[in-house]
Simulated scan of single mutants.
Amino acid sequence: MTTSTGSADLHEQLRQLPKVSLHDHLDGGLRPSTLVELAAEIGHELPETDPDALAVRFRQNANSGSLEKYLEAFAHTTAVMQTAANLRRVAREFVEDLAADGVIYAEVRWAPEQHLQQGLTLDEAVEAVQAGLNEGAESVAQKDGIIVVGQLLSAMRQSDHSEEIVELALRHRDKGVVGFDIAGPEAGFPPSKFAAAFTTLATRMLPATVHAGEGDGVESVRDALVSGRAQRLGHGTRVAEDISVVESEQDPAEDGEEVFQVELGEVARWVRDRQVHLEVSPTSNVQTGTIAAFVPEGEEATLADHPFDMLYQLGFNVGVNTDNRLVSGVTLTGELVALAETFGYGLAELADFQINALEASFLGYEEREALSGIILEAWNA
């Protein structure tokens, strides 16, 4: 995409357009100033006490190429999210920040089991977050804005609480919870280990998205679809490893542009043909090494190496997400600008990603239709 006034104006144009966010972690999206304030209140030591310096530190860690450094931030964010009041505040600000970035529908994911260190029960934690989400939406409405937010409850793969978290999600399904997720270390903790939990979800008709194709490869994606009955794939990026380039040639009709013929493996073909939605987080995928297989040997990964455009061109159902706004130092608008500048997308393509995400959301049909009208009207205008 090109504009006459440059990327700053493009950013502002896209910021004002309605967007959809499906993959955004609550504990990865705190305001730096809030983290500093809450840490001081409980005596938790941070690597930096100036909010701007703290944000820079987290971005540097994220860009270091070290997953360990990337994850450092979460020890700090979860430490200050152990009381109902703090969870409520973080959730409220989370919504307000999304709305300021033009998001009108969001699913916020988080793991309640990680927020019980100061005596909260699982239900109390969920209720506190929902209260904050409601307050955030009300605050946005008072300024004549609109945002709808649902909770995705994540069970941590390395622990043994998946069935308990499923029951928690079911208890709150009519009180703000819209679905279930598993997160944490992907390799070594396949969805098949949690088959009973996924069976309960399917039996009770609560949808699931599964982190897969981020920290592990194609077989993890397969298991997410089979054992996890995943309606969506959290990231899903490494499904591209199941796509082979079989030949390439110069296309004379395209001024000598190289044209590639590809072959899809059975997992990639299933995901593409069934239009299983991929919750792609471009910057995070670069930072965490998810796209390592697509980076030329000896070179540093960049967004241009991401298979996002290949997946999109081949007809995969892709959406754009931030994953962890504080940790990665991104916004949804910024991710769209980066993709536009890297792959030459125009407004039509960027609008596609919003509709893809909305149609794959865990909202009801009527709500999706209403928000779809808002999105299409704004982007077409």
Rank of each mutant, 00 (worst) to 15 (best):
G6P: 08
D27R: 05
L358C: 07
A106K: 05
L358Y: 06
R272T: 08
V80T: 14
V95C: 06
F316I: 08
M205E: 15
R222H: 11
L350H: 03
T288N: 09
I182W: 15
Q114Y: 12
P112G: 09
L22W: 04
T49K: 13
Q158V: 09
V286W: 01
F308W: 15
L332N: 01
P190H: 12
E341P: 01
D305S: 10
E124Y: 04
A202H: 12
S248L: 02
Q60P: 00
D216I: 02
L26K: 05
P307D: 13
S284E: 07
E127H: 08
M81A: 14
S64G: 03
P296K: 15
E163H: 06
S33F: 00
T3I: 04
E124Q: 15
T209E: 10
P282C: 13
G319V: 11
L363S: 14
L168H: 12
F74E: 12
G119S: 09
H76F: 11
Q231N: 09
K143W: 00
G234N: 12
D101R: 02
T83G: 01
Q275T: 00
L120E: 09
Q313E: 15
T333C: 06
R59V: 07
Q287A: 04
T121G: 13
L201P: 00
K193Q: 09
D9T: 03
S328I: 00
R269A: 14
L314R: 05
F294C: 05
R229G: 10
A240I: 08
G43S: 12
A40T: 12
E258K: 04
L278F: 13
A73M: 10
W379C: 06
R269K: 12
A111E: 06
K69W: 05
Q313G: 07
A304P: 02
D144R: 01
S372Q: 06
V140S: 10
A202P: 00
R222P: 00
E299M: 10
D52H: 05
A230F: 09
D174Y: 02
L133Y: 08
V280P: 09
F308D: 05
K143A: 15
N321F: 03
E41Y: 02
D9K: 03
G234F: 03
R92K: 07
L22E: 11
P307S: 10
D255Q: 12
